[in-house]
Write a protein that binds this DNA or RNA. Structure first.
Lengths: 233, 233
DNA sequence: TCGTAGTTACGTACAGCGTACGTAGTGCGC
DNA sequence: GCGCACTACGTACGCTGTACGTAACTACGA
C-alpha cells in the first residue's frame, strides 16, 4: 500500500539487493543473461518484459523488482556483453592495440547483432564499460595527449565501429527478411535508381554507377575506416 | 475482396498515385509534413499511424493506402527533411565545403532532434537523399580519388555527425527529462563513479577525473572531429 | 521475542501500438 | 456502361510497457 520508492536514474547506483524481505531469487547477471539469450535467438524486438520474465521463470511484474524500467534491462544486457571484451597486455604500440580493439568490438557486434542498436553514451558507466574504458586508456599510455583527447579518440573509434557494423548488419538483415529474392530486390532498386539517374539530374551519381565494379570488400572498407580514424590522431 | 497487392520493398519505386479510383486526398509531401510536425512538437515516439492520420484528418487505416508500413512513413519524413539541405555552388576547396556540409547537417539535426534515430543507410536512395549525395559529390570534384573513396568519405562524415549529434541530443534530452535536478543527478552519478574509481581498480580513469576541468566545449569537439575525419583523406 | 516495516512475488487492468481484414463508395479504362 | 482498381475506414487481434493492489515473507528495533 505504501508508495513505492523513487529509484535512482542509474541502475548501477542501486544496491543489488536489500537486507529485508524474502531472498531475491535472481541476480542481475541472471536477468541480463536471459535478455541476451532472447535477443541472440529471436532479435532485440523479442526482448519484452513478459518474455524475459518467462525465460527467467517468474511472473512479468516480478521482474520490475529487479529492473525498474525496460531501459535498465537493456543497460544490463549491454554491460553483460561488454564483459566479453578480451583485455590483453598492451603491446606498446597504441595504434596496433586500438586496431585490435576495433576488430574485437566488431566481432562482438557480429556475435550479438542487436548491440549496435543499444549502444548509447548514456550506458557508458556500467561496471564492464568502466573496465573496457580503463583497458583502452591503458593501451593509450604511449599516446602523447591529454585524457580528454584520449576520450575523443575512443569515442570516435567506438562510434565509427558501431555505425559501420550497424549498417552492415542492417543491410544483411534487410536482405535476409525479404519476401522475395535478393536479385529481384536489387533489380527493383536498380531500376528505380537507373530511372532517376538516367534523368540526367545526377551526372556524378551516374558516373559513379558506371565506375562501380564488383561487390564491396566489407573487410577492406572497415580496415581503412579504422586506420583513417586513428590517422587523425 | 480481392487480395491486396504485394508492395515493392522501396516506397520510392511505387507510383505516388494510380489512374483508377477516387482521387487521392493527400500527397506524400502532406503525409511527410504531418509526421514531421508531430515529431518536432511531441517527439518521435508520438509519431504513430493513428496520430499522423488524425493530424491529416483521415481515418487511421486510410493512411495505409499511402504508406504500406510505418517504416515507410519514417522514410518519407527523412526524405522531407533531407530536402532542407541547402545546396550551394562548390567553392573549389572540398575540405571547406565538406566542413560546411557537416555543420549544416548538424544544424538540421538540432532543428529536428528525432533525425539521428531515423538515420539509416537503407534510406539512402530517397529523391532528396540523391540530390544531397550529388551535391556532396559535386563538392568533392576537386578531390583526387575514385567515387568509391568519395562515398567512403561521405559515409564516414555523415556517420560521425549522426553519432555525435545523436549523443549530444540524447544527453540533453536525458537531463531535461530528469524528475530531479541536474545537480542531484550529477551528484548521484559522481558518487557512484567516485566509489568505483576510488576502489583503485581504474587508476587511469581516476587520473582522468582529476585532470578533467570545466565543462566540455561541444562546438570545439565537433569541429575537431570533423577535421579529423577529413584529415584521413 | 514480537510487531512492523521494507521487500519480493504476481495477477489484473489499462492505454496504446502496428496492422490484417471486411466492406462500402468512387471514378477511369475498356 | 460495365467492371475493376482504387480510396476510405471501422472493427478487431495480439502485442507492448507498466501502474496498482494484494499476499507472503524476513530482518531489524523495541
Amino acid at each position: 500500500m505504501a508508495g513505492r520508492a523513487v529509484v535512482p536514474e542509474v541502475i548501477w547506483a542501486r544496491p543489488e539487493r536489500a537486507g529485508r524481505g524474502p531472498k531475491a531469487a535472481y541476480s542481475r547477471a541472471d536477468i541480463a543473461e536471459a535478455g541476451v539469450r532472447i535477443a541472440d535467438a529471436q532479435g532485440l524486438d523479442a526482448v519484452s518484459m513478459r518474455h524475459v520474465a518467462a525465460e527467467l521463470g517468474c511472473g512479468t511484474m516480478s521482474l520490475y523488482n529487479y529492473v525498474p524500467r525496460k531501459e535498465d534491462l537493456h543497460e544490463l544486457m549491454v554491460d553483460a556483453i561488454s564483459g566479453e571484451h578480451e583485455l590483453w597486455e598492451p603491446s606498446g604500440d597504441w595504434r596496433a592495440d586500438m586496431v585490435r580493439v576495433a576488430h574485437q568490438t566488431r566481432a562482438l557486434m557480429v556475435r550479438h547483432p542487436w548491440l549496435p542498436r543499444l549502444m548509447s553514451p548514456v550506458y557508458g558507466f556500467s561496471p564492464n564499460a568502466l573496465r573496457y574504458l580503463e583497458h583502452c586508456l591503458t593501451c593509450l599510455d604511449p599516446f602523447d595527449g591529454t585524457y580528454g583527447t584520449k576520450f575523443e579518440l575512443i569515442a570516435m573509434l567506438n562510434g565509427m565501429v558501431t555505425t559501420y557494423v550497424g549498417n552492415e548488419l542492417a543491410t544483411a538483415e534487410r536482405v535476409r527478411s525479404l519476401p522475395w529474392s535478393e536479385e529481384r530486390e536489387n533489380a527493383v532498386r536498380g531500376a528505380y535508381l537507373g530511372g532517376q539517374v538516367a534523368g540526367g539530374g545526377y551526372p556524378r551519381l551516374a558516373a559513379a554507377f558506371v565506375e562501380d565494379s564488383g561487390p564491396i570488400d566489407l573487410e577492406g572498407v572497415f580496415e581503412r575506416m579504422v586506420l583513417r580514424v586513428l590517422g587523425g590522431f
